[in-house]
Simulated assay, not measured.
Amino acid sequence: MKTFRNKQQWQELVLAQQQSGLNISAYCRKHKLSTSSFYAHKKRLASTEGAFVCAQISQHKVIEHQVTQLELAPPNVAITLELAHAKLHLPHSVSPSFLAQLLRELAP
């Protein structure tokens, strides 16, 4: 019997695969998922996540660039980047590639 999953469930599966340390084939085998479906949904999610992200600056001056604590948040929780006294709030759906690019741009 075929299992139908909504967008949020696929987002959670893709995130879980990334955090598992397993490659996609091994993850799909372990969780009895079709690799072709997994790749298709991952691609579809990536194309919708690259959209414009609205960010609000709460502090203009950044004093230091040092990551003091990193916590993994469960899916559907907003992402907050905090540098010195500045906080940047991003939606949970922001793509990892956008987040990586943002961190590179914020680096000194």
Rank of each mutant, 00 (worst) to 15 (best):
N6H: 07
Q8S: 09
W10Q: 05
W10D: 04
L13H: 07
L13S: 06
V14T: 02
V14E: 06
L15E: 14
A16P: 01
A16M: 02
A16Y: 00
Q18L: 11
Q18F: 08
Q18N: 03
Q19H: 10
S20E: 10
G21N: 01
G21C: 05
L22N: 07
L22T: 05
N23L: 11
I24P: 06
S25D: 10
A26G: 06
Y27N: 01
R29S: 10
K30F: 07
K30A: 03
H31N: 09
L33T: 03
S36D: 10
F38D: 07
F38T: 08
Y39A: 04
A40T: 15
H41R: 12
H41F: 15
R44P: 03
R44W: 13
L45D: 07
L45K: 01
A46Y: 07
A46P: 03
S47W: 07
T48S: 12
E49S: 12
E49N: 13
G50F: 04
F52W: 13
V53N: 06
C54R: 15
A55F: 12
A55S: 09
Q56E: 10
Q56D: 10
Q56I: 08
S58A: 12
S58T: 15
H60V: 12
H60G: 13
V62N: 00
E64M: 06
H65N: 11
H65D: 08
H65F: 14
Q66L: 08
V67Y: 00
Q69L: 03
Q69V: 04
L70W: 09
E71I: 13
A73N: 07
P75V: 02
P75H: 06
V77K: 01
A78C: 09
A78H: 09
I79F: 10
T80L: 08
H85N: 15
A86V: 15
L88T: 05
L88I: 14
L90G: 08
P91T: 00
S93E: 08
S93I: 04
S93F: 05
V94D: 03
V94T: 08
P96K: 13
P96V: 05
P96Q: 09
P96T: 04
F98L: 14
